[in-house]
Design a protein around this nucleic acid. Structure first.
Length: 569
RNA sequence: GCGCCUAUAGCUCAAUUGGAUAGAGCAACGGACUUCUAAUCCGUAGGUUGCAGGUUCGACUCCUGCUAGGCGUGCCA
């Protein structure tokens, strides 16, 4: 599709330039050619509103301009163009010869797994940091959404040539993990029978810590009571972080997400890099002392408030190691770094970008995308609160468990990933659990998977009937005469552009939508037309190539999403 | 108060980033299995794109002002 588009682009430019030369178009130079979507076959294969855009500068009616351009295109006959048409207010609709449809099928059949891939990102390294949940509890479903989106974005970026990696930043230092240690200490002592203890302010109430404490008691009994409380809290903090981080990793693996790099905040702090950052900021005059703390002049960068980087107790706030961490990413040589943050980190976006600017890095080097919240809703529309502190939240694991009960383990991850991926990142996602579970059979993911399974089934049936797929060069593709067949091929031709735009715009949700549309064209076709037809083998071979194309695109698309493409259902 | 996100069919969401008649899936109603898998298909119905202006050939999309919901907002991360 891209190749043919640039070819048409050149032809149109040539026509415009010829028109300018003979004085028919009073414009200074040849413009870029925009393309507009062709929603229906009546709009041709490729459409451009170029004449509409030129109307103002040329001071001519759009349709007149279109007529001039079309005239010049027709003067030099192009084999790829079957017909040209001026429509509506002045759109030029291009009808391509069928040969390009056949070319599309040839491209797919030759490329197979590689169809959809491109090379625009070759030589560029990108790091995506996502999830990065505090190691203070199980992953919740917001992390699940981030995991699905981040994982898929990395797949997409790699598909278009970038070298992209997945990274998890472990917040294993700072106040939150201290609260974790204190909370475990309370649960530990409670488990040993101590009474009148309460989880400290800002601590973690969840049952998982009771279980963890009971586990410690089961293994070590009261051995830790000999330690001072301070020592014990520190020990439980480290034990807790290791335990909970391990759980998170296990959950992510189950969800099909494997991080390439885990970076520890503690390690960053111990590396001395935060100190270097502070020195650098101080040298550049970004810091000042006030109210016993050290402040960063965020207002110098256009923010409305300065912020504390060193607390009055001498400890760094979260920002210093985080700035150091981002500088570390730069040191590692990434051309671009993308952070996927949760909705509660929205206040950080400007500040983090300002820190990066203060470090002397380019504005567009760091890109931050907010993955909006996930609301768990019941069918009656009521929302469930999911505060980690209160211990009431649905974990990613329990979500998959529930789905597995309904649709089986095999599809649970597929369904969850699809649900998380089908919405744009910046929209609030209402996850209707009852709907996802009780109506799982009507879930759109099955619709797509079923289309793939049906394709596979055709080939299996064909094999049983001893009908083999012929090499494409021996197949008469002109036997594909149905309009629905041409539309299917056109849709298949869109796939690489979908992959590219999803990757470049970080809009992973376009892929599931595209696949759903493709399946939505395949199923009616399947119902209406028989592929295997012994009385018309010539057409059968041609249709098998088409089906092969559909299957390949469905499989490639699902693979990008981390969703299985079953051969039977 | 200020900042960010959101508002599209009864519900959940799309709309190729300013293009042609705003599209799907659920839910509702009526049909199709002797045929490559009925987890499917066909048909009917469903809309003043939150409200009011503005920009232009053209606006769900951009600008301004409202309304409603969510989130954030100098020593948690």
């Amino acid at each position: 599709m891209d190749e043919i588009k640039s070819e048409i682009c050149d032809i149109l430019k040539g026509a415009i330039s010829a028109a300018i030369e003979v004085g028919e178009l009073p414009i200074p130079d040849v413009p870029e050619i925009p393309f507009s979507p062709t929603k229906t076959p009546e709009h041709g294969d490729i459409a451009t509103p170029i004449a509409l855009g030129l109307a103002k500068s040329a001071k001519m009616a759009p349709r007149t301009i279109a007529e001039i351009i079309v005239k010049h295109v027709i003067q030099n006959k192009h084999p790829r163009i079957r017909d040209l048409e001026i429509a509506g207010p002045g759109f030029i609709n291009v009808y391509l010869s069928n040969e390009w449809l056949y070319d599309t099928l040839r491209t797919i059949v030759e490329a197979t797994d590689a169809y959809g891939r491109s090379k625009v990102g070759v030589g560029k390294q990108i790091q995506i940091e996502f999830v990065s949940a505090n190691p203070t509890g199980p992953l919740n479903i917001v992390s699940g959404r981030a995991a699905a989106v981040g994982d898929t974005l990395v797949n997409l970026l790699n598909a278009v040539g970038y070298e992209a990696i997945r990274e998890f930043y472990v917040n294993d230092a700072g106040g939150q993990v201290e609260r974790l240690g204190e909370s475990i200490d309370v649960r530990y002592r409670q488990a040993l029978g101590e009474e009148n203890l309460e989880i400290p302010e800002g601590g973690y109430q969840g049952e998982y810590l009771q279980e963890f404490a009971e586990m410690i008691v089961a293994e070590e009994a009261d051995a830790y009571l000999k330690l001072s409380q301070e020592e014990r809290v520190a020990l439980f903090r480290d034990k807790g972080v290791a335990h909970l981080l391990g759980q998170q990793e296990t959950s992510l693996e189950r969800f099909g997400v494997n991080f390439d790099v885990w970076t520890s905040e503690k390690a960053i702090r111990e590396s001395g890099k935060p100190d270097q950052i502070v020195d650098m900021f101080r040298e550049k005059g970004y810091l000042y002392e006030a109210e016993g703390a050290t402040w960063f002049r965020m207002t110098d960068f256009g923010d409305d408030k300065d912020c504390v980087v060193i607390r009055s107790n001498g400890e760094y706030t979260y920002f210093v190691p985080d700035a150091a961490y981002h500088y570390d990413k730069f040191d590692r040589g990434f051309d671009k770094v993308i952070d996927l943050l949760g909705p509660d980190h929205q206040g950080h976006v400007t500040r983090l970008k300002n820190f990066v600017k203060a470090l002397g890095l380019a504005d567009d080097w760091l890109e931050i995308d907010i993955i909006q919240q996930v609301n768990l809703v019941d069918s009656d529309g009521t929302r469930r609160d999911m505060s980690k502190r209160q211990g009431q939240f649905l974990t990613l694991d329990s979500l998959i468990d529930e789905l597995a009960d309904a649709v089986g383990e095999r599809f649970a991850v597929d369904v969850a990933r699809y649900f998380f991926l089908m919405r744009a990142n910046n929209t609030h996602l209402d996850f209707n659990l009852e709907l996802a579970v009780t109506q799982a059979n009507e879930n759109p993911v099955f619709y797509i998977q079923y289309a793939h399974a049906r394709c596979c089934s055709i080939f299996q049936q064909g094999e049983e009937q001893r009908i083999k797929v012929k090499p494409i060069d021996e197949v008469s593709l002109e036997m594909l005469t149905e309009p629905s067949e041409h539309e299917l091929i056109r849709k298949l031709a869109d796939f690489p552009a979908i992959v590219l735009s999803s990757a470049e715009e970080r809009e992973a949700h376009r892929v599931p939508h595209y696949l759903h549309e493709l399946a939505g064209m395949f199923h009616p076709y399947y119902n209406q037309h028989r592929v295997l037809d012994a009385s018309n083998m010539k057409r059968t071979y041609a249709r098998l190539i088409l089906i092969q194309g559909v299957r390949t695109v469905l499989a490639n698309g699902l693979r990008l999403l981390g969703i299985s493409a079953p051969e039977s259902m």
